[in-house]
Amino acid sequence: MKVDIVVDARYKSCPGPLLALAEAVMKASPGQIIMLLATDPGAPRDIREWALNVGHKVLNIEKADETYQIYLEVSS
């Protein structure tokens, strides 16, 4: 997957990862793909809920060691 922006929010607890991602989305363009790196165990569900509310699309969530890689496509 082609990633346009990487947001590293590892070792940040809630609401750090979501706020970091939301800030990146504000600066991003529609169609861009953001990869969020997070270790907060609540992050995957939180990001999914948030994306549902605001209309962005979670493409995939992977986990390597303790790090989640959350792929988000920015909507218009």
Partner: peptide, 12 residues
């Protein structure tokens, strides 16, 4: 602050 800001960031 976490709940208030998260709500705002969620479009609430």
């Amino acid at each position: 602050a976490t709940l208030a800001t998260t709500a705002a960031v969620m479009g609430w």
